[in-house]
Amino acid sequence: MDDHLIQVFSNVGMISFIALSAYVLLLTGEISFGQQAFFAISAYASGIATAMWGWAFWPGLVWGAAVAGAAAFLLAWPTLRMRGLYFAIGTLAFAEMVRLIFEIFRYQVEIEGELVGPDGSEGFRGIRYIFESDISATQYMLIIYLLLSAVLAFLFAIERTRLGAIFRMLGEDELLAEMQGVNRTYYKVMATVIAGVIAGIGGALYAHMNTYIEPKIFNVMLGVHSLAYGLIGGLGTAFGPLIGVGLDIGLLESTRIFTGYRMVVFGGLVALLLIFRPRGLLDEAAVHAIKSLWRRFLPAAQTQRSNNRAPD
């Protein structure tokens, strides 16, 4: 693979995390404009850990994702009462607050005669752990996809258990779910935290790949894009957001076929797509159809599937 291709795949992989993060909340019926906040928080937290505190990459990543998860936990409470558009605007306000705080956040230490650390709107340079550890771009891409597969596996596992059913039930009709005895608070907070951690993993990966981050990367455009990816790809499966990211970043941005007017084409295509498929390419009906085709042609897969079902 050439360098350009590796870069493209890595970008697709990293943005997929934040798209998946928005997707998890969409499942529970909430539109978030603010998942970029957790991406940003983890990018800074993990960067600080490796570049300033001398931590290794993996603990740094875990730390970043954990801090993002904790922030999501804190955000979950005030936003619990917000519904519909209010939730969307509330998460937007939160994410912009986070970004604007990073614009004025200064925390620097001297390392080998050089100031390292977040410097407000000047950004945060020198997150060089990957670079200094001689991890190649290809290896790093593999790390990204390894983690992405783990997150996907986790989401598919959720879909097959009661938890997934509860998330979708909350997404369909919150009141009905509550009448069925679902503890709304508990599951909403859980979904928010899961979404925060997933975005956080992506943020840590992003910071270490680029070695430099600045607050304006994490603006609301990133958040709305990641929300859109889920809807473009389809709300029926966790592959949906990946398809959305792949189409936009993988196909259009990188192949440069529409350089200069990519958004004119892509924006128009997305608008057209949503007229005909308002819940995306792989919506619930499409996923269902694919699954039944799968079952018809591969009866073995079906037995496998039912054996794997969680025991509840």
């Binding site: 709305v224 958004m263 892509f266 924006g267």
Partner: peptide, 11 residues
């Protein structure tokens, strides 16, 4: 509709 309006925004 909302996402579509975002797409047209980009456009």
């Amino acid at each position: 509709s909302m996402v579509s309006s975002f797409a047209i925004w980009m456009q």
